[in-house]
Design a protein around this nucleic acid. Structure first.
Length: 377
DNA sequence: CGTCTTTGACCTCCT
DNA sequence: TAGGAGGTCAAAGAC
């Protein structure tokens, strides 16, 4: 059977200069969700066969992203973002999507309700500018996928931010302590559970136990323990309480998130338009883009940020290459991880392929997102 | 005995 | 304004 190797999605992290750059307007709010779309992977595999990057950026509010992808060193004939033959199924792209237009890539996405999700929602009242990162990874041996998320110190403040390594990379077996599967390094207290209408699974409500921290986490989990969706509300303004073993197993996917919320800006219109730049190519060279990934380019960041209201940004970034080798090889191409991060572990969805082979696990093993950095605008 | 989870009741918001 | 749905509280039980 074909296997996959070297998922090599790498989004160039912001430069120091960018990091130091003052926010445009009063608010900056970006990445909120990172999800791995196994279904897309499967589709990709069936169609593309060799390489694929699937990126889905969705949000309810304007954002500005500059993304750059690097193919795996060993990748050949990487198709970059191109996914010919796949229809865009996401309504998100019906919005103004510069990303889509600029890259001229027909990224296709399949929305599967059963997919594990991790979503961050911005607080509506806090004024903060934070930098955060998310690491997503999948454990081997049919272990559920792991998502690491980390919030960094606010910009302008020292980055002392406790880079506490992630504590506990659990084995993440669905059958064991399902609640722990989403451990992100913070301590959570469950305060409620409810079966929401229209939702297939009960929704659990968690609060961060850190004093004065109002961050909440809501996720839906199937009976078998698989996490179907994770929603974060608010951002931690404190270091992780635990020390860590964070970079131990499988921190394969990294996303840096930078977001800030300004009360005034939050009162803006909620029109869902956002500008973002996505550049990629098979050789690690950025694709042409009106708004490059360079610091200079991001200067032109969308003023739309000033109109950010409520944000829920979904990002799906999947890039992988199929090989005919005998085993799945997950090897990071780059190592953009540069900041402390929270770990969120999720369960991978089990999907069955036409051939009857349960490929979900295989995919989960193969998925690797090395770095997604939201560049400040 | 302290902490965490469970779960029914209550509160708030939206239509 | 009423009803429904989602979110939160808090007592009780489990660990």
């Amino acid at each position: 059977m074909n296997t996959f190797s070297a998922l090599a999605l790498a989004i160039v992290p912001p430069t120091d200069e960018q990091m130091q750059r003052p926010l445009i307007g009063n608010g900056k709010h970006l990445l909120h969700l990172c999800e791995v779309d196994y279904a897309s992977l499967l589709n990709t595999w069936h169609s593309a066969g060799i390489a694929q990057i699937a990126i889905l950026l969705t949000n309810k509010n304007p954002i500005a992203l500059s993304l750059k992808f690097k193919p795996h060193a060993s990748s050949n004939s990487v198709s970059g973002l191109s996914t010919s033959g796949h229809p865009l199924s996401s309504g998100f792209y019906q919005q103004k999507n510069e990303l889509h237009e600029q890259t001229q890539n027909q990224c296709q996405f399949q929305s599967y309700v059963s997919m594990p999700l991790a979503r961050y929602e911005m607080p509506t009242s806090k004024e903060s500018s934070q930098y955060a990162s998310v690491n997503m990874s999948t454990a081997k041996a049919s272990a559920p996928s792991t998502v690491e998320y980390d919030e960094l110190n606010q910009r302008g403040h020292s980055k002392s931010g406790n880079e506490d390594p992630q504590s506990d990379h659990r084995d993440a077996l669905p059958s064991v302590a399902p609640d722990k599967l989403s451990d992100d390094g913070y301590n959570w207290r469950k305060y409620g559970q409810k079966l929401v209408k229209g939702c297939e699974f009960p929704r659990s409500y968690y609060k961060c136990t850190y004093p004065n921290c109002d961050v909440k986490k809501i996720f839906e989990r199937a009976l078998d323990g698989q996490i179907k969706e994770i929603v974060y509300k608010g951002t931690h303004d404190h270091p992780k309480p635990q020390p860590s073993r964070r970079f131990t197993a499988g921190a394969l996917i990294s996303i840096q998130e930078e977001k800030s919320v300004n009360a005034s800006s939050l009162t803006g219109q909620g029109d869902t338009t956002y500008s973002q730049t996505l550049s990629a190519d098979q050789n690690g060279t950025p694709l042409s883009s009106p708004r490059g990934v360079n610091a200079d380019n991001v200067d032109g960041a969308s003023p739309l940020l000033n109109t950010v209201t409520d944000d829920t940004v979904t990002i799906k970034c999947i890039y992988f290459r199929r090989t005919d080798v005998g085993s799945i090889d997950i090897s990071p191409v780059v190592k953009p991880i540069r900041e402390p991060r929270v770990v969120v572990q999720t369960l991978s969805e089990v999907d069955i392929l036409d051939d009857g082979v349960n490929m979900a696990k295989k995919w989960s093993e193969a998925i690797l997102i090395l770095g997604i950095y939201v560049i400040p605008v």
